[in-house]
Design a protein around this nucleic acid. Structure first.
Ligand code: FES
Ligand code: FES
Lengths: 159, 159
DNA sequence: CGCAATCTTGACGAAAAAATAATGATTTGA
DNA sequence: TCAAATCATTATTTTTTCGTCAAGATTGCG
């Protein structure tokens, strides 16, 4: 269970936009530089995010990308859903092995776990807004732990 | 954020062994048939699970695989960790874009979320044992919801 | 022993995901 | 108008993951 490259980079690009002063914008080369990815890659990611309505793009000189909606209104669950190609809900259609559908006939112990896990993650992400990711690592970490009072087993790694 | 093929199929193979009567075993062709995957694929998965110490293999005629430890003692978090190539803990070493490491200098709002999410999932999985996955879908679903009292937004799909 | 059933293991090919490249369209401003 | 800056879109290449294959090793049985 891991975060895909698209999810991670896409999210990071949005955080850069959210960190801007009100009404600010960034060009593709700027985003690419800030996140350490290629301009082409940033271009594709922003294209996806634009199609999904998270950002607004302006062409031509002095163009760039800016947030379409207030960062306070954008939940991480929405973002991930777009960047992850809507994997939710169709679990037993993928991973079908050599057959056309899941082999477990009607009664399966795996399915509720897989579906439950996705729900768990979505639930956690739906309680965090883009705006909350702007700020120091310490404050974001504190926020996450406050919202989901889980017992952390992995410590944030220093740089 | 999704489950990989290895995680899913590996887990499913283990559930088949766990569903066996005490001391039972299955051969590769049997496992492959039960899960609808190829024998070769089942072979590689079981090899991984054998290396990790979850199962015990016997060669030769009348050979096969059986659980090495009681299903009640095997937590899903252990299984996933093995099948997922230990992705935990080294987040800022992957997804480094065109550079050698993460660009965010020492203060990053993404990192606590990613690490927190992984902790959240691991925590959830650590509370479920392999033995609990054996049984009807309804009972497993009820168990999952009891352990993690989350508000389910996705319903299990019928077959 | 000698064969058949079974697991073991590394190499190989196919498929999916990710990243890049290439070409086109729009806007601004000199 | 024209050129430069910028985004848009599709195609291609690269990388990673996944699945298969083939040769080998071990065990049980007659
Ligand atoms: S029916 Fe889909 S995993 Fe069991
Ligand atoms: S420092 Fe690794 S994602 Fe920000």
């Amino acid at each position: 269970m891991k975060i895909s490259a698209q999810e991670e980079y896409g999210l990071r690009c949005l955080v850069q936009l959210a960190a801007l002063p009100e009404g600010g914008s960034l060009t593709l080369p700027q985003i690419a530089e800030l996140e350490g990815i290629s301009t082409a890659n940033a271009g594709k990611l922003m294209w996806l995010l634009n199609k999904a309505g998270f950002v607004h793009s302006t062409r031509g000189t002095k163009g760039g990308y800016s947030l379409e909606r207030p960062a306070e209104d954008i939940r991480l669950s929405e973002i991930i859903k777009v960047l992850d190609e809507d994997v939710l809900g169709k679990h037993c259609g993928s991973y079908t092995g050599v057959r056309d559908s899941c082999v477990h006939n009607g009664d399966c112990g795996i399915r509720p776990v897989i579906i439950g896990l996705h729900a768990l993650v979505e639930n956690a992400l739906s309680q965090i807004t883009l705006a909350q990711l702007v700020g120091s690592e310490r404050s974001v970490d504190a926020m996450f732990n406050r919202v989901h009072s889980i017992h952390r087993t992995v410590e944030p790694q220093g740089v």
